[in-house]
Design a protein around this nucleic acid. Structure first.
Lengths: 209, 209
DNA sequence: TGTCAAAGTAATTACTTACTCACATAATGG
DNA sequence: CCATTATGTGAGTAAGTAATTACTTTGACA
């Protein structure tokens, strides 16, 4: 077996760095992840990192792309395998929770990027991910309404917001209890209530302008 | 009218500092709020801050106490004014959203504290707030179940988690769109679905252990 | 009015951060 | 095998951080 070469091509180092950030974020406040910490986990010098990334935000861009690609691919695969829109939504939701259980730092990183003051490229990627996610939700919800499995008056935007909130609520519980297995179990229980809300939501808001 | 004295008692300066942090957090990433920035907003030197707080985390403690006191007092007042448990929940929810609209930095600060690695006093205060909030939710939900306004099989813990998630989802939308008025409007629409979910949730989960 | 402690300043501390640079080493292709 | 280029090192840099310190100002009160 060939020994691991000591100099690796830039592309592989970039992938290594992204992975290092994801794993560091699982146990550290993302804002406190320094280039030194990333380099240390890669067994490189801090300066060597800048052979592969022009700036620290470029690392964050790589991370956000990684998250976006993997998360969207997963929910598309899961949702695509279900014929019933409600089953697709449930698969998306449970798949998302699994993703977070596997990579607990991800929601923290997302939130951290989104609340950065300036308009960094990494922040834009994070926002785009949320938008793409929302679009997929609304598409499936619209299909459900068209097929008549949810009431015609269901407020699709509100349902999408609540869906994302459902994930966030579980993340917050996870942050407090720190138990991934519990998060998955809670997910199913929360889904029951959400699903009931979709099916029973009052039709069209009448009255007040 | 007496001119504002140039030396103020420590207690007043502490209150000023807390207010300064709350307002700074509305437009800045809380992690990036420096003692210099706080002092600047108070029109003081950076060093002067440490006449009133022994350490920076002590400032965060003051902030978390401020949040805890104000938020819990508000939701208790609103919920206490309603006889019907569901009306109480709705008042709590809308009051919470109003609170966030008034102080947009608050949820960001909370999240920032909760994900700090070490066990700082400020972090403990943040977690205690979430726990107290959850306890109030569960108490009202239990009352609703006892009065029969929600099905006897309603999963109260899951309902509380989803309630907190509902708030979080709105915060995330607010983070992306940056429109407080819209957040309040969305809140009512999301509430419709949540409420329907409470009322219609399947009774007791039968089957699998 | 003079005294004195509390409150404020300006400069400085030790430390951390992202990023750079001169130089060394490893991989690769003629 | 040698020359070239990509990758890595170790020691920097400048900018910022929380906290400290020697000294001044302020305000209250005997």
């Amino acid at each position: 077996m060939t020994p691991r070469p000591r100099h690796l091509p830039s592309e592989e180092r970039r992938a290594e760095a992204v992975e290092a950030v994801i794993r560091l974020a699982a146990s550290t406040n993302p804002e406190e992840i320094t280039t030194s910490a990333i380099a240390a986990r890669m067994k490189l010098t801090q300066g060597a990192l800048f052979r592969h990334f022009p700036t620290k935000d470029a690392i964050w861009q790589g991370v956000m792309e990684w998250v976006s690609d993997r998360l969207l691919a997963r929910i598309d695969r899961l949702a695509g395998a279900e014929a019933d829109p409600l089953a697709a939504l449930e698969a998306m939701f449970l798949g998302h929770v699994d993703f977070i259980a596997e990579h607990p730092g991800v929601p923290r990183m997302m939130a951290g990027q989104l609340q950065n003051a300036g308009e960094t490229p990494a922040k834009r990627l994070a926002r785009t991910l949320v938008e793409n996610y929302g679009n997929r939700l609304r598409r499936i919800l619209a299909a459900a309404r068209a097929e008549g499995v949810v009431p015609p008056g269901l407020d699709i935007d509100a349902a999408a917001t609540l869906f994302l909130g459902m994930v966030q609520g579980l993340v917050m519980q996870h942050l407090i209890h720190g138990d991934s297995a519990r998060m998955r179990a809670d997910a199913s229980r929360v889904w029951v209530i959400y699903r009931a809300g979709l099916l029973a939501a009052e039709h069209a808001q009448e009255g007040r302008a």
